[in-house]
Design a protein around this nucleic acid. Structure first.
Length: 252
DNA sequence: AACATATACAACCGCTCATAA
DNA sequence: CTTATGAGCGGTTGTATATGT
């Protein structure tokens, strides 16, 4: 029963990776692809733990990584996503192509936290620092059988809006985002109901759905309603469907 | 120039979850 | 069904570099 240990820690290198180690890892993955991290170090001739190899590849060596400074738009996107998702760095990274969870986490802790503090905003709650503790809205992923998002609120006095789907009061935590959530298994994706403008369909891009209009990432388009390839508009967290498939959120 | 402190980020640690055995 | 492992995630630490004194 069970499997053998992942690696012998006594015989593995730790700390910063050398150029030679990087080259070995890159060469191996180019040839064999990302496979079993456990067996990779031995196969690639690396004295590293598989976990360490995975981290090095994902956070630093992957060819599709976007290196360099974060743009102002990325900053704002991270802030908005964080206000929705909290410290779910992998989910946030999933919405920022070329960025890793580790990179975003570090950037948050070193730059954005301070930026928000300077704006007088609590980086944890995303509310003005002097404001009393808000009602907490929790988003919990319920059992797989149900596959629904439950949105709960502890108390309510102000700033409430009624979710069409939940039929229960939900307090806005991020005022410029309407968390009109639905979720269902992918197979049950219902027909998209895009905005119609005179026989044509307006599709909001992800950037606009998050309130970042006029960004360079804005790809809002007036599309033909009969098109089968692009009839869906971005919705919550940029999902190209009106039904949230939470599993897609976990892509990375 | 030398030292202290702050900052940035790569890497590690420990945990959870899904799943193989 | 139970147990151990692999993979992945988030928090934390370590270290190199920048900046201030």
């Amino acid at each position: 029963m069970g499997r053998s240990p992942c690696c012998e820690k006594a015989h593995t290198n730790k700390g910063a990776w050398t150029k030679e180690e990087d080259d070995r890892l890159i060469a191996y993955i180019r040839t064999h692809g990302e496979g079993c991290w456990r067996s990779l170090p031995k196969a690639a001739g690396l004295l590293r733990c598989g976990k360490s190899c995975r981290l090095r590849w994902i956070n630093y060596l992957r060819p599709d990584l976007k290196r360099g400074n974060f743009t102002e738009e990325e900053d704002e996107l991270i802030i908005k996503l964080h206000s929705l998702l909290g410290n779910k760095w992998s989910l946030i990274a999933g919405r920022l192509p070329g960025r890793t969870d580790n990179e975003i986490k570090n950037y948050w802790n070193t730059h954005i936290r301070r930026k928000l503090m300077n704006r007088g905003i609590d980086p944890t709650t995303h509310r003005p620092i002097n404001e009393p503790a808000p009602d907490v809205k929790t988003i919990s992923f319920a059992s797989k059988e149900e596959e629904i998002i439950k949105i709960t609120t502890s108390s309510s006095t102000t700033g409430l809006f009624m979710s069409k789907e939940e039929k229960s009061p939900v307090r806005e935590r991020c005022p410029d985002l309407n968390l009109d959530l639905k979720i269902s298994p992918p197979s049950q994706h219902q027909q998209e109901q895009p905005l119609k403008t005179g026989g044509r369909t307006t599709s909001l891009c992800f950037a606009c759905s998050l309130g970042i209009q006029k960004s360079k990432d804005c790809n809002c388009s007036i599309i033909d309603g009969t098109s089968s390839s692009n009839t869906t508009g971005y919705d919550f967290l940029g999902l190209k469907t009106s039904v949230l498939d939470y599993r897609r959120l976990e892509m990375k």
